[in-house]
Simulated assay, not measured.
Amino acid sequence: MATINCNDTLAVACHRIFAADLNEHGTLFGGRILDLVDREASIAAMRVERQTVVTATFDHVDFVAPFKIDDSMCLEAYVTGFGSRSIEVFAKVTGEHLKTGDRFLGFTCFATFVIDEPDAQVKFEQVIPTTPEQQQTCAHYADRVALRRQTRQASLALSQHIDTAFPWSNKN
């Protein structure tokens, strides 16, 4: 059985929060976190197959605590499961108040990527967790996949009722 260790997929990046990163509430723009997570999590996913991947979903997105000026944030992402062409990555962003050294959990999510090459398949059969955190995130992979399938079906049903015409057009 071909296996890969979570730590073999680990991607880590640290960033300092500056005034230009803040929204009108004095906290980091949520979109900035999502952008960073998407970039770093894709590195973890590519470490599985060494092929281009595309983002398919973000779920279990939790903005736990805000990041403010003079905080740093450390993003960690690692693979927690995969299907035949999909790769799930857990990402967390921890913060540090640089003036005090206090640390906090700021953000978590799961992102799913799909191998861009249509004929490519994930060659591994199992991801091996080593830390208690990894054991917990990997343990519920099948549950998250089932929930994603349900959500996808609901999204497809809703999309049948979405109007794609521009509101200013003369479509009747």
Rank of each mutant, 00 (worst) to 15 (best):
T137F: 06
H161A: 13
L156V: 11
V145A: 07
A111I: 08
L10E: 04
K171S: 12
T52H: 04
Q126C: 08
L156T: 08
F29G: 04
L147D: 06
G30R: 00
M46H: 06
E96Q: 13
Q136V: 14
T57G: 01
T100L: 08
T130V: 09
F63N: 08
E40H: 06
A154P: 00
V61Y: 05
C109L: 11
I162E: 13
T3D: 13
H140A: 08
G31N: 05
R152T: 07
L36A: 06
V93P: 14
Q160N: 14
L36P: 00
F18A: 12
I43A: 07
R152M: 02
A157G: 03
K99H: 09
S169F: 02
A157L: 12
S155R: 15
A157K: 09
I43R: 00
D59I: 03
L75Y: 12
G30I: 00
T52Q: 07
E133T: 09
T80Q: 02
N170R: 02
K171R: 11
I43E: 09
K99V: 04
L28I: 06
D8P: 09
V53C: 04
P167S: 06
R144H: 04
A2C: 02
F58Y: 13
V48K: 01
P118G: 12
S42L: 01
A19R: 15
E125D: 15
T3R: 03
T130C: 02
T57Y: 15
A154F: 12
R32F: 12
A41V: 01
M73L: 11
L34W: 05
F67E: 14
F29C: 04
P66T: 07
E49L: 05
E133V: 06
L36C: 02
I87D: 04
Q153I: 11
G101T: 15
H97F: 02
H140Q: 06
Q135G: 02
T80C: 13
R16E: 15
M46Y: 10
V53N: 01
F113Y: 13
D38G: 00
D8C: 08
R85Q: 09
T52E: 08
V12S: 10
L36E: 09
R152K: 06
A111G: 06
L98M: 13
M46P: 10
V93A: 15
D62M: 03
F124A: 13
A120K: 11
R152C: 04
